[in-house]
């Protein structure tokens, strides 16, 4: 494609995974204890999508990357101090909760509206990227709904690779069970790609890119409008952290054969 792609990456933020995450019930329903005060990172699933988007844009001249994020803008600003140094993009910020307890449907509507409002966005070149899942909630529902609202029916989830063919079509590898991939062919944009881990490492920080990005990011953050999520459509009956499923045993002098046998039995369970 001669004019490149318009790649919109949908990305929320989540608490730094090393933090102690403790569910509590607040006035607005379930939440994480001290969530606003915990350091945050870009949702790792979405971060992979961003790096893949930047990689694709670099190899397709004329491409442009937008990052659309529905997050508390004060927290998003902190996250941008790292992410803005990774790859070039333009931020579209929506101020609202990024918690895993928000309604995926409402979030999708807000994101889709924000995407539709991006000036100069060319739908014929549009690729909507995001995380297949989210570190705050593994439902994997939001991105599909964003695609539906935007009327994009070519959707791929659990993507590990996107290869551009000589005719401009895509060869897409989607992760399925058993460590294998489903290979799909797609004629081209518009499409929605929910990324798994992709294949790219986290890019090193590049301060020059950071300075360039931040000149537009700061005004975007300052001008971020409330996303207007009404909430209240979902009732949470119970919230708890996952229980420990593995019972560790310390056994001395077990032979390799016995260990192997035990592992096989455990897998069969």
């Amino acid at each position: 494609m001669s004019n490149g792609y318009h790649i919109v990456v949908c990305a929320g933020i989540v608490p730094d995974p090393l933090q102690t995450l403790e569910p509590v019930t607040g006035p607005q329903g379930p939440a994480l204890r001290n969530e606003m005060m915990l350091p945050a990172v870009l949702d790792p699933w979405a971060a992979h999508a961003l790096y893949e988007a930047a990689h694709l844009a670099r190899n397709a001249p004329g491409s442009k990357v937008w990052l659309v994020s529905l997050s508390p803008k004060a927290k998003l600003q902190q996250v941008m101090m790292t992410i803005a140094q990774k790859v070039p993009f333009e931020l579209v910020a929506l101020d609202g909760p990024a918690s895993g307890f928000t309604d995926a449907g409402e979030t999708a509507v807000a994101l889709a509206r924000a995407i539709q409002a991006i000036p100069g966005l060319d739908r014929s070149r549009l690729l909507v990227f995001g995380g297949w899942e989210s570190a705050s909630r593994g439902a994997g529902a939001t991105l599909q709904m964003v695609g539906e609202i935007l009327g994009i029916t070519d959707q791929f989830q659990g993507v590990d690779a996107l290869e551009i063919q000589s005719d401009g079509s895509f060869r897409i590898l989607e992760r399925i069970e058993g460590g294998v991939h489903q290979v799909s062919a797609c004629a081209g944009p518009p499409a929605v790609l929910g990324w798994a881990t992709g294949t790219l490492p986290e890019p090193p920080n590049q301060p020059q890119i950071g300075m360039q990005n931040m000149r537009a990011i700061m005004p975007a953050l300052q001008g971020a409008q409330p996303a207007g999520l009404a909430g209240g459509k979902i009732e949470f009956l119970e919230v708890r952290i996952p229980s420990v499923r593995r019972e560790t045993q310390v056994i001395k002098d077990l032979s390799p054969e016995e260990i192997a046998k035990e592992i096989v039995e455990w897998i069969k369970e």
Partner: peptide
């Protein structure tokens, strides 16, 4: 967020990025 206020670089995104790097 707290340190940026206390040590007076809340308005300096260049320095905030340097800190993260």
């Amino acid at each position: 967020d707290v340190r940026q206020i206390m040590w007076r670089y809340a308005g300096r995104f260049d320095l905030q990025m340097l800190v993260q790097s």
